[in-house]
Design a binder for these strands. Structure first.
Lengths: 180, 180
DNA sequence: CCACAAGCGGAATAGCCATTCCGCTTCGTT
DNA sequence: AACGAAGCGGAATGGCTATTCCGCTTGTGG
């Protein structure tokens, strides 16, 4: 790979990460290319399509999240591990609009984000099961409820216009609802 | 107004209500005109723009909701009034995609839906205050939390693909979280 | 039954954006 | 330094959809 090509790829990734985090999937390809200081052709040489670019960026976020969830699983206190993994997930969501979009959006063709999703889900599932065994999670709440539990906070964060309501308070409310 | 024009207006309103409830704001003007069996020109003679049409339909829904909330305010049991108004709101949301969109969507130019919104909000605010006085609502929860509380269930309903999770269960969870 | 205003349909217009294409430029090798 | 391949920019293309426009049709009052 030529050195200028590698440089451009980095510039594009930086621009994509930043703009997508700030403004979500609605940024146009042209804006991303401009922010990176390259032409559209170069953008398309680096990503097969817009969807593929979004998927790349979302996959990176999931990677971070998977590592974080792994650490949460090691936390001794089952209740704290549970709280931490929810909070970490939502913190990333707060920082990244395209991640929220991926979590909330209709089933687009998220390329192979599914694999990462499954890894993360595995961690969460084990953490929740451990919580149930330890008696810090109501036993009618299972991993199947995870989307429902976070979707609420996620959506409030994503959609409430104006001054964002305090999502940590919302999370606290949710945690209270699922404790015995 | 000519008789055929009145007939067409009815057909258009029916089609708009039905398609918007089923498929939300993404239906095209052409699809609505076709479903009503009229041309685009006729559609635009009845609504100034797509936004205006959406606003008309959403306003109708709010009207229903306002009457319902009024009845909830009259319910003797403060806790039941509270539960009922949340449930009624969410039931309408379940039945109408464009209403969900209006509740979740970014601040579009919702024409004068704001007035209706304010009336509904007035009812809910009084119901919540009564709940707090009666001791069936935690006193750190106020009307300002209403969007947060319903947004969660709303979003889960709107976005979870595939078999809809049971929103009544989610609501029950939320109600539990806000009770003392 | 007539005249004509009110209404109608749907082709044309316009803006937006993802994606493609190709003639030009730059890198790196010899 | 020179050349060919790799890479580049950005104009052109294509599809989608809201909105406008205008020549044709139809309801209705006289």
């Amino acid at each position: 790979m030529r050195s200028d090509a590698r440089r451009n790829r980095e510039k594009l990734l930086d621009a994509a990460r930043r703009l997508l985090a700030e403004r979500g999937h609605e940024v146009s390809m042209e804006q991303i290319a401009a922010a990176a200081g390259v032409g559209l052709g170069t953008l398309y040489r680096n990503f097969d399509s817009k969807q593929a670019m979004l998927a790349d960026v979302v996959r990176e976020r999931y990677q971070t999240l998977i590592e974080f969830a792994g650490r949460c699983e090691q936390i001794d206190d089952a209740a704290e591990g549970l709280r931490a993994v929810f909070e970490g997930y939502l913190q990333i969501a707060e920082d990244d609009a395209v991640f929220r979009y991926a979590m909330l959006g209709e089933e687009l063709d998220w390329h192979d984000v599914g694999e990462h999703k499954a890894l993360f889900a595995g961690h969460v599932e084990r953490i929740m099961r451990r919580g149930a065994s330890a008696g810090v999670l109501r036993d009618d709440i299972t991993f199947a409820d995870f989307p429902m539990l976070v979707c609420g906070v996620l959506a409030t964060m994503h959609y409430q216009p104006g001054p964002r309501p305090d999502w940590r308070r919302h999370l606290a409310l949710t945690m209270r609802a699922i404790m015995p």
